[in-house]
Design a binder for these strands. Structure first.
Lengths: 137, 137
DNA sequence: AACTTGTTTGTAACGATTTCAAATTTGGAG
DNA sequence: CTCCAAATTTGAAATCGTTACAAACAAGTT
C-alpha cells in the first residue's frame, strides 16, 4: 500500500483532504466504482463533499495516469487504481466485476492491419464462479 | 444482403416501415452509428420519425439478436449488424472505428478462472493506418 | 491584513436515454 | 368495407451521468 500523499506529490497534485480520501477509497476498494459510488461512500465522512469535486478529482487522476477509467459494458465510467493490464469479467447474474490476470496477445505486436495499437481493453461477460455454484444447487 | 422483411418475420417482429428502414440503414452503413446518428440520417426521408421509435426499435433488435450493442470507449451506445465476432479498433485522431478480423483466444475455452464466458469484447485504441500516413507526410 | 493562487462547492446546463400517455396505424372479425 | 382491439409510433417530460461555471473558501506570500 503506497503512501498516498507521496504519490500525489510525485504527480504534482496538492494532497488536499478530498483528493487523499478519494484515492484512498480507490486503493481500498477494488470494485471498479463509478464516480457516484465513490461520492456516496465518502459522503458520510465528508458531509460537504461535492459531486463535482469527485468528478474533477477523478479526471485529474486519470490525466496523471494514477487511475484508469473504464467503460466496461454499460453507459457508466468506472475507475480503478492503475495496475498491470488485465481483463475484466462481468457477471450478468450478480453484476460483480472481476479482474482476471490473463495476458493478451495484442501486447506483443503493436501494429495490427497497419494500425498502431496504443491501448487495449478486453471485456468478458458471463456467469461467475459463485453464481454457477448457486444455480447448480 | 438478406431480405429484411423476411428477417423481421423470422424474429416475430412486425415489419413496419420504420423498423425496415432502421434495419436497412444498419445493413448499408457499417459505421457503428449511435441511435441519434440513425435518427438524423432517416429524418429527411421520414419527417415524422421519432427518436423514441429509433431507441425502441434498436432495443427490440438487440433483444432478438439481430443487432449488437457496443459500448466501445465513450459514453455512447453504438449499434452494428450482428456478424462474426471481431475486434474493434478506434482511431484517437480521426475517431473512425474499424472492424478487425482477428480472432481471439477466449473463444476456445469458455471457462476462465471458473467463470463461464458467454460474450467477449475486445477494443483497441490507437492511431489508424491513414492517420499514420498523414503524420509521416 | 490584503493578494494571489489553487481548490471546493452548489446550481444550472447538457446530452443520451427512458418513461409515459396520447395519437396513429394495422390487421383481423363481423 | 367498417369497426374494433391490439400493436406501433409519437412527442413531451423525466431521468441519469456528467460537465460548465461562477461564487465561496483555504493556504501561503508579501
Amino acid at each position: 500500500m503506497k503512501n498516498i500523499i507521496e504519490l500525489l506529490k510525485e504527480n504534482n497534485i496538492a494532497p488536499s483532504m478530498q483528493r487523499v480520501k478519494i484515492l484512498e477509497y480507490l486503493q481500498n476498494h477494488k470494485t471498479h466504482p463509478t464516480a457516484y459510488m465513490i461520492y456516496q461512500s465518502l459522503a458520510d465522512e465528508m458531509p460537504t463533499l461535492s459531486k463535482t469535486t469527485v468528478y474533477n478529482t477523478l479526471k485529474t487522476f486519470v490525466e496523471k495516469g494514477i487511475l484508469v477509467a473504464l467503460t466496461l459494458f454499460e453507459n457508466e465510467v468506472r475507475y480503478e487504481y492503475n495496475t498491470e493490464p488485465h481483463i475484466h469479467f462481468k457477471c450478468t447474474k450478480c453484476g460483480k466485476i472481476y479482474d482476471l490476470d490473463k495476458s493478451f496477445d495484442y501486447c506483443t505486436n503493436d501494429l495490427i492491419d497497419g494500425h498502431k495499437v496504443l491501448e487495449h481493453y478486453v471485456n468478458l461477460k458471463g456467469i461467475c464462479k459463485n453464481c454457477l455454484v448457486k444455480a447448480g444447487a
